[in-house]
Nucleic acid binder design. Structure first.
Lengths: 192, 192, 192, 192
DNA sequence: CATGAATGAGACTTCATTCAT
DNA sequence: CATGAATGAAGTCTCATTCAT
């Protein structure tokens, strides 16, 4: 049938509810309701609430990663590449505000070694990806040489992933509207 | 007696447990146990688990604020003042790693309008405090004039408060050891 | 299976315990125990202890109502109809002594607008039902005309529903054994 | 001092709160607050919440009894005496609506053999008191002889004490406004 | 695959009562 | 007499998870 699979309906429902109300305030019943499946069905596709949550996080992160890699190819200039990364992250956070809100709240409840490793893997790959770009920038003499590329990459990544933190509590601080200031300051900071 | 008051014992115990295990995994029974008081005693001093949590957050924030204001007075040079702010924040996060871990996880469960307002008040005051310093830096021609002081202040504040976010999940990324890089990049970014 | 449904077992258990020990002294655990179901099962069928109580009251009231309406049809004589109503009520109270004991004790804890309305509806319908009979009695010149039918109906209803009040505290006063006296006095009072 | 004694303040506060919110919803803390004494003070004057409640009930009942006995003396005519009793009861209930609401709700929580006996004593005395009046009415040939005086007395008493039951749940049924109907029906019923 | 009734451990909270001061 | 901090038993309710159908 042209029906959306029940598994997909569950994921969509869970994403909506987790991000609106957080991991702890969301119950499996609510998810099942919203997805219009029986509670047991949720457990057919996912071993536990925790695993469902982890799956959603991982999916989101992978989407972000591939979006960045695809769009970055189309740009040649190193500085523009960095601008692009910053923008994609910021946009992603802005659109996925709720998405990352849930990330922070649920993490502690959900984390285990296996999941931690997956996150670290992703992070490491992202950092290496950015570090290569910065390295290239150094070769092109557009970025100053006195800072370690990997350090810079991690710093940028940390800044970006963490910027989102306060979006939730601080509605007045609109990151997107300030994105030029952010890019401006960061770039001036790393440029020769 | 030289005894520590029971209220203090409760706060200490709660801080320890909340920060080690998060808001949701910590039970009021555990707190009472750890503090060596009866469960009811917790409720004599705090109306609810939520209120206890809020009280701890607020106390921590206020301590940070007064530490900054006191130490900043002793420094004259504008650039050094900014460096100091960055350092105090980073040190605070590093020492209070657990402290802020609990902050993020518990927030969603605990937030209400009253509490939100208190947090906003704190943030606004901090931003104004930093903005004044930057303004002074502009007068002294040490900081570029083309960016709004308040924007810059908020940006710095957001960067700082949010940097802490990933400390928890990313044990390899030691912020303190990178603090010079951070300060360096930020300052080059905002200097003329 | 010939099994009684768990919901019914819960209701039966609750009725027994509420009426024996009152609303407040009865715990949900006791009810679950008595019904031989898990505590959670009680909450699967009823949202709260309060709602379970309300359901039981309402069920009882409805049974009384339909019993009266069915039996009254079989009787033609107006005076006999009234006698019958009085008797059914008194019998109901006597058999359901405990039933109404619980009614009084739990009421204050359980009452809310919605529930109040349901009770009022029932009462209004009963009064109208009785008023019609009295009205008919007037036409047949068996009942005196100088008292309002509805007033009389309400008075009878109030007398009847409230007679039960003191059964609990006054074991010596056996209503059933006095029912002829009661009917006698009431009827002679309202007869021409 | 011209001060009202603390004991009296406690009783007044308890009466107010018990009758407004019922026995179970009233806490000892609330009573202490309302009376402006410390919680411990309540326990200096009363061994328990239960005993405080019993004391209040007993006081109220005694007041009703003496009011009736005093006023009845002033009336000579037997029929008028009975009317008076009915009226005093109904008025008492009407004024003390809340008072008796609390009576019903708290009773089950508070009853013990000792207390039960005290209530029975009161009831017996009241019944005997009324029975004597009826007996006198028989002698004066104003009341029919075919019903036992004590039965009649108990019936009247039960009717009266129980009429109050539904005042609480049925605000539309104003007993006082119907008191003539009640007296009328009762009296005509028992008169020759 | 799918359902949803059933489970039960455990969480938060209340509050009558006590007792050292 | 009076206080109020402290106690802890007990109660209501939630919800992730299971399993017979």
């Amino acid at each position: 049938m042209g029906d959306i699979s029940k598994k997909d309906r569950i994921i969509t429902a869970a994403l909506k509810l987790f991000s609106e109300n957080g991991y702890h305030k969301t119950t499996v019943s609510q998810i099942a309701n919203q997805a219009e499946v029986a509670k047991g069905t949720v457990y057919w596709y996912f071993d536990s609430k925790k695993e469902l949550f982890q799956a959603i996080i991982l999916t989101g992160i992978q989407r972000l990663a591939s979006k960045i890699e695809n769009r970055i190819k189309e740009e040649d200039d190193i500085i523009e590449k960095i601008k692009l990364i910053v923008m994609i992250y910021l946009e992603f956070f802005d659109k996925g505000r709720q998405y990352f809100r849930m990330f922070q709240e649920g993490m502690l409840a959900v984390i285990d070694d296996n999941f931690k490793n997956k996150l670290m893997d992703f992070r490491t790959k992202q950092a290496e990806f950015i570090a290569k770009i910065i390295e290239q920038g150094k070769k092109e003499e557009k970025i100053r040489l006195d800072v370690d590329s990997k350090d810079m990459a991690y710093l940028l990544l940390t800044m970006l992933t963490s910027f989102n933190s306060h979006l939730h509590y601080d509605n007045d601080f609109n990151i997107i509207s300030k994105k030029d200031t952010i890019i401006n300051i960061f770039l001036q900071g790393i440029s020769r």
